[in-house]
Write a protein that binds this DNA or RNA. Structure first.
Lengths: 341, 341
DNA sequence: CTGAAAGCGCTTACAG
DNA sequence: CTGAAAGCGCTTACAG
């Protein structure tokens, strides 16, 4: 079947007006066409692999059917498996509506790619944007602000607070940490530590841990500077640090960990000296990677990244007309007790 | 400055014909306009943050200014830091030409997202496609074949051979392995092993190692089944396996490793028994992650992923008109001796 | 070098 | 339920 290229040609083949074909092919208007005619038209379209050309439809409707994901340090953002889940959420929600995700590499702040990004934003290349990285140049942020389209910022990655001009997608771990504390026997309250890589993200998590600590509890920190970058080294880095500081670490019974990988590293170190996780020490992970691949055997706190991606898209679609409201879309982390695996 | 939305408005402001504005704004035609007029028009456009709307331009030119990256198992593909480099290469090359990358999640083979992908491909949503994953449904592959647009397949991920209907981006490690062997003292030729995770990718690497082995050399394999998925565990998995098989491993002097991470795991295991890498044993890594973050202290084989991304785009652009030629675009791996760090 | 006009392939009031 | 027509905002021969 040779591919037919335009509405016109299909209309001729079907012996109807192009507008009839158009209506039959659009789910939103298909009901206007009599069932027999609709079926016949759709059959012809399928036969010739015809679909309305997206750019023509875009021109006619004023939409672009694109949402732009603006990334700064691609190599960092994209190499996190959890970010991949977020993207999957974005793509899933978009594609079911006939939209697609466009990646915009804003490069390093204020580089030439920053300008390309600005150009992209100013050329109405998408109906909405998602700022997915903390590493964005001011030019890019400014252009996003001025583009007249709704913008979602991923606030987990954003050290600052709520941005009044954007739609803020924020992570809320309150409930999860509260539940985690409830699982800790009170006799351990004075033997709780936070363990993880020294990073702003860890500090934020530590603050949350403290915020929801019971009255008589306390929490110390063990933060290691990672000489090797990338989360692929998190496990090993954690293990090495733990081995070096085992004598101090042994004073504690419970560890809130910055990630599942650091928790696994800590576990390895303890296992080497015969400690058993769950018996001698208690670990509470934070989903970093583990949950995407297999069950964990200690409790962890899960961030519903895919769901967050879907929420981001939903928020964009709901704000297509009134772009610049200060909105906060929280997504709740969940505490998963160890039995979940 | 209120944003001006159309060529018309800008033309009025500048007191010229819309076509003159159009020409002044397009780098390819700007030379047709007298310098003074051009400057004046460009200044006005900048002042009002005006750029020609991409979808209108697309309609007029018949291009889409998009290239689609078709991904199957997003969570796998995107979570590899090296794939991120590939994407950076794609985005960089595209953006400098006014193009953007669209992500297409084809989902699990033959699921409903497969249909969405087909719909996307049939609606002329991009000027070319890159099949970035081995995990693609047959529907998707078929649609890519039929879409009348150039298609690049990433052949490193493809177990099969060259596909005559696509542009094949293939990795060539011949030269790198040849050089690697040259660095190995002949007295070790009978004490060489390949070490890595048991996977098709490892097997292909092992085959290459053997193919370029000197006449009197031999190479055994040590492949471990990874009980934990994801490359974040590669290091730890390798280390554990190596510790369990240390007595056998000690028979060897040289290890070709499937990745830098597995090499690091192996190194850890040997270090625990006092061996020193570079003195007692020789490791040859394969860039998996390490090189993106820091120098390695053993030789490795680097795949120029970002360059590969740029090559993919170049190949697409060169084949916009004659899409279905069997083309092979090789990208050469490089052997990096340990001195490079 | 610049303008007037046709046209890209759809969608969607409007009329019947 | 269907058709004829206008229009979305650009680009690009064509004419001058």
């Amino acid at each position: 079947m040779k591919k037919k290229n335009t509405l016109q040609e299909i209309a001729q083949l079907a012996g109807v007006n192009p507008s009839t074909v158009s209506r039959a092919m659009n789910p939103a208007t298909a009901h206007m066409i009599s069932p027999e005619k609709r079926k016949r038209i759709q059959a012809i379209c399928k036969k010739y692999h015809y679909r309305p050309r997206l750019s023509a439809r875009a021109m006619a409707t004023g939409k672009t059917y694109k949402v732009g994901l603006v990334l700064g340090a691609i190599e960092q953002d994209l190499s996190n498996p959890l970010f991949a889940l977020f993207i999957r959420g974005l793509c899933g929600a978009l594609q079911s509506q006939g939209y697609a995700l466009s990646i915009l590499w804003a490069g390093h702040p204020d580089s030439s790619t920053d300008n390309e990004t600005t150009a992209f934003l100013e050329s109405n290349a998408a109906d909405g944007y998602i700022l997915g990285s903390a590493m964005l140049g001011s030019l890019t942020r400014e252009a996003a602000r001025a583009c007249g389209k709704p913008v979602v910022v991923l606030n987990t990655l954003q050290p600052g607070g709520i941005d009044p001009e954007f739609i803020n997608l924020t992570r809320s771990c309150a409930e999860a940490y509260r539940e985690a504390w409830q699982d800790i026997p009170p006799e351990y309250y004075l033997h709780v530590a936070f363990f993880g890589k020294n990073s702003p993200d860890s500090m934020r998590k530590f603050n949350e841990v403290c915020r929801f600590a019971p009255a008589k509890a306390s929490c110390e920190t063990f933060l290691f500077d990672s000489n090797r970058g990338g989360f692929a080294f998190d496990l090993k880095n954690a293990e090495e640090f733990a081995e070096q500081h085992l004598s101090e670490l042994k004073r504690f019974k419970v560890f809130f960990c910055a990630s599942d990988l650091t928790a696994l590293g800590l576990a390895s170190a303890f296992q080497r000296i015969g400690y058993k996780v769950g018996r001698d020490i208690m670990l509470i992970g934070f989903d970093n990677i583990e949950a995407t691949f297999e069950g964990v055997n200690f409790p962890t706190i899960e961030t519903p990244w895919e769901e967050a991606g879907r929420s981001a898209i939903q928020a964009l679609f709901e704000n297509l007309d009134m772009p610049k409201t200060a909105i906060t879309i929280p997504f709740q982390c969940r505490y998963l007790s160890s039995s979940h695996s």
